[in-house]
């Protein structure tokens, strides 16, 4: 009865950075609508996706996450009209750091997820999960997904 193998049971572990007002409600909606996405996806919600620090992404991947996904505010951001560009720069900087440290930049993805984009979130997760499973395993992973 005890959860045998833990979260990694369902393959690649994905850390999502979401945003309190835009993408996190979209992710909530995926749950409310009982849409399926891998249980190895976990979420940390922040005020705005342009506030994700590249160092957090590097830390997450080096400590054991197989992928990091930024569920960005996109054009809906209530804080910054150029949020997409700024979040893009976060991604660039994190990928530069990752490459420099021998990591695989493909383990970082970003897409705008709006406050009702439940379906698109679930599908992003399924696809990213599948793509990560095909990469050189960063850690022991199961096969189903």
């Amino acid at each position: 009865m005890s959860a045998p193998p833990g979260v990694h049971a369902s393959g690649p572990r994905i850390l999502v950075f979401s945003t309190n007002n835009i993408s996190d409600p979209g992710i909530d909606l995926a749950g409310s609508a009982h849409m399926h996405y891998p249980a190895s996806v976990v979420v940390i919600s922040l005020p705005c996706s342009s506030g994700v620090k590249p160092s957090w992404i590097v830390h997450a991947l080096e400590r054991g996450f197989d992928g990091v996904f930024i569920a960005a505010d996109g054009g809906d951001c209530a804080y910054l009209s150029d949020c997409t560009d700024r979040t893009g720069k976060v991604v660039q900087e994190a990928q530069r750091l990752l490459t420099e440290r021998g990591g695989d930049p493909r383990r970082l993805k970003m897409a705008a997820v709006c406050s009702v984009c439940a379906e698109s979130f679930a599908s992003h997760m399924e696809k990213f999960h599948a793509a990560l499973a095909k990469l050189e395993p960063a850690s022991a992973g199961g096969s189903h997904g």
Partner: peptide, 28 residues
């Protein structure tokens, strides 16, 4: 800790995995 919309409701029928995820969320 959001273990309903972002866990139990999203991972129905996968109790071991959902439980492990909920534990991780609460730990965080």
């Amino acid at each position: 800790a959001n273990i309903r919309e972002q866990c139990s409701w999203a991972h129905r029928g996968e109790m071991p995995a959902a439980t492990a995820k909920a534990t991780a969320i609460v730990r965080a």
